[in-house]
Amino acid sequence: MNKELEHSFVELLQKHQNIVHKVCRLYTNNTDAHNDLFQEITIQLWKAYPKFRGDSKFSTWMYRVGLNTAITLYRKSKRRIYTQEFDALEFKIKAEEYDDTEEQQLKLLYKAVHQLNDIEKALVFLYLEDKDYREISETLGITEVNARVKMNRVKKKLKTILNP
């Protein structure tokens, strides 16, 4: 029975692993940290899998456990905090030589998103993943109205970071 459960879980995880990678991409700055977080999310997903009833989509369930791990459960290593500070410094230098091409703008946008706090990142992540406000509010445990308000603030904050 346990083997069967394990098999079905790994199959689903293998299929949807990009969701985990995308969470890691937003919450980490280097490959080591990305792999560390990927590992922890995988463990948390497996631990929670027996409780997965199948009444929601596996992917929807993954967003929740993945974000919970990144925001709350995962213990950041010192190495990562250091790297983040370094990146912020690099961003300031680059912002001064701002180039208007789309590619350059995207690069700056990704860096700006990395400067947001954990909750703001979660909002941006779910937005980028095309989730509606109902799902965003259910994942974070806030009301739909507050999710909208916060999203607008995040958009403004990004604008300020990009055009200081």
Binding site: V10, N18, Q39, T42, I43, Q44, Y74
Partner: peptide, 25 residues
């Protein structure tokens, strides 16, 4: 960027799910 990420195979994922957690809980 879907294809940018490393795609773990089943055999790579099996040992990963049994590793020790380092969560704050």
């Amino acid at each position: 960027h879907k294809s940018d990420y490393k795609s773990y195979s089943d055999t790579e994922l099996y040992p990963m799910i049994h590793k020790k957690s380092s969560s704050i809980v």
